[in-house]
Write a protein that binds this DNA or RNA. Structure first.
Length: 423
RNA sequence: GGAGAGGUGACAGAGUGGUCUAAUGUGCAUGAUUGGAAAUCAUGUGUACUCGCAAGGGUACCGAGGGUUCGAAUCCCUCCCUCUCCGCCA
């Protein structure tokens, strides 16, 4: 959520910033609701103030005395008036809040102008992508792939996009998860194992509700959502809390399966492990002092990059332009791994600074030593990393002539052996 | 799932219809005292919204949401959570 005062006092600033995201947003209804709400609020408060002082007078009167009964009669009218005014205030407030929740976060000044994916800035590139290998092929065309990654049986048991990982396939998932968690721990991110169902309040706090309800799976009996990312439970860990400034920054990482409905995709985007309804991911999250959030974003990105470097995978870093920024992000880098077989880049991490956008929705604050008052933290998160696409890149980039895959040296100890076999 | 007991400020804990802007204790902050500390004493000690240039007002908040009433921390209803016992269970 945006700062209501910022919107109220400098709507033009907000309007211009949103324009950078190339979103169609009309602020006027929100501003009108804000003005109406404040008018109604002061009416109600004035009436309540009168009611309160009358109540204090009545406390001193003898109960049942003529003066008392007269006062009761007098206050009945005021009481019903208060109820009436309150009855019109409440819907205004609800509408105002709902409207505020539809407003996107504002992009940071360093975010490049642009509308589409093509206008994202290639910020950095690591490793060679021009090595032509006669062996290179999409991972789903590697002989024996179906034995380790059983999509057919996954579709039978659950549906499309829910593969079984079998044998060395399962082992590789586990190796990557543990590698990511261990590396996170070394970099100071405390490991957390969170719930993977969350309630509506948690989904709202991070910006998945109300506008992205369709992306999440929902439980029937209870109003719970299967997490689309560990970001959801992790960010909500400190919801409605006031932290010590000395405790900042807090670094956490978490592994969870992630569940996404992702309706409407087709073609090569969804082949093999590229896009799944259930996948595994380690998420990195920071709660930081607002003054340091941009340097913290850089160091989080650097950590995510170090994972790809240790796995010896070619990758590039994109700085997202305004138009390709998400709803809640102020600035975002995407890390894309080079898929040697598909000859394309695959997003494996999105590192974002949300500034106070999530913190305001979630009411995550710290007590400022300077002012002595609670202030909103900034939240930063990024994948570190998403498993299936990294996994497919490991397969495609390290496929040997004998049909086996030689694992990166950093990963081999986790896998327990150097060679993965599809046989 | 069944039965019962609860949910009050940073914490403990009083308060069962009307100066509750919530007693008291602990903690915390500042000051006094001290060579310094402890102890003691004094003062202060939440959050949010809103009005105001400011000084300073106002309103709300006793798990959440509704209701009754002139008036609700207190009474009623629904829900959530915690604890105890039973059942079930990895």
């Amino acid at each position: 959520m945006l700062d209501p005062r910022l919107l109220r006092e400098t709507p033009d600033v907000v309007r211009a910033a949103i324009a950078k995201k190339h979103l169609e947003v009309d602020l006027d209804p929100v501003l009108a609701l804000d003005a109406l709400w404040r008018t109604q609020l002061s009416e109600v408060e004035a009436l309540r103030s009168r009611q309160k002082s009358a109540n204090n007078e009545m406390a001193g009167l003898k109960k049942g005395s003529p003066e008392f009964l007269a006062k009761v009669q007098e206050m009945k009218g005021l009481s019903s008036l208060v109820k009436e005014k309150e009855a019109s205030l409440a819907p205004t407030e609800t509408k105002w809040r709902a409207a505020m929740l539809t407003l996107p976060n504002l992009p940071h000044a360093s975010v490049p102008e642009g509308r589409t994916t093509e206008q994202n800035v290639v910020y950095a590139t690591h490793g060679k992508t021009d090595v032509a290998s006669p062996l290179a092929r999409p991972h789903w065309e590697i002989p024996g792939f179906d034995r380790l990654f059983d999509f057919a049986r996954g579709a039978k048991v659950t549906g499309a996009g829910f593969p079984f990982y079998v044998g060395d396939g399962a082992r590789l998932v586990r190796a990557l998860v543990q590698f990511f968690l261990d590396e996170g721990g070394k970099a100071g991110y405390q490991e957390v194992h969170p719930p993977i169902l969350v309630n509506a309040a948690s989904a709202t706090a991070v910006g998945q509700l109300p506008d992205k309800e369709g992306m999440m799976y929902q439980t029937v009996e209870d109003q719970f959502y299967l997490v689309p990312t560990a970001e959801t439970p992790l960010t909500n860990f400190f919801r409605d809390e006031i932290l010590d400034e000395a405790a900042l920054p807090v670094y956490r990482c978490a592994y969870t399966p992630c569940f996404r409905r992702e309706a409407g995709s087709y073609g090569k985007d969804v082949r093999g492990l590229n896009r799944l309804h259930q996948f595994d991911k380690v998420e990195l999250l920071k709660w930081v002092h607002p003054a340091r959030s941009y340097e913290e974003l850089e160091s989080l990105r650097a950590h995510a990059e170090s994972l790809l470097q240790k796995l010896e995978l070619p990758y590039r870093v994109l700085l997202m332009c305004g138009g390709d920024l998400g709803f809640a992000q102020a600035k975002k880098y995407d890390l894309e791994v080079w898929s040697a077989g598909q000859k394309r880049w695959l997003e494996v991490s999105s590192c974002s600074n949300f500034e106070a956008f999530q913190a305001r929705r979630a009411q995550i604050r710290f007590r400022s030593k300077e002012s002595g008052r609670p202030e909103l933290v900034h939240t930063i998160n990024g994948s570190g990393l998403a498993v299936p696409r990294v996994l497919s890149a490991v397969l495609e980039n390290n496929l040997q002539a004998d049909g086996r895959v030689k694992l990166p040296a950093a990963l081999a100890p986790y896998f327990g052996k150097e060679l993965l076999s599809f046989a």
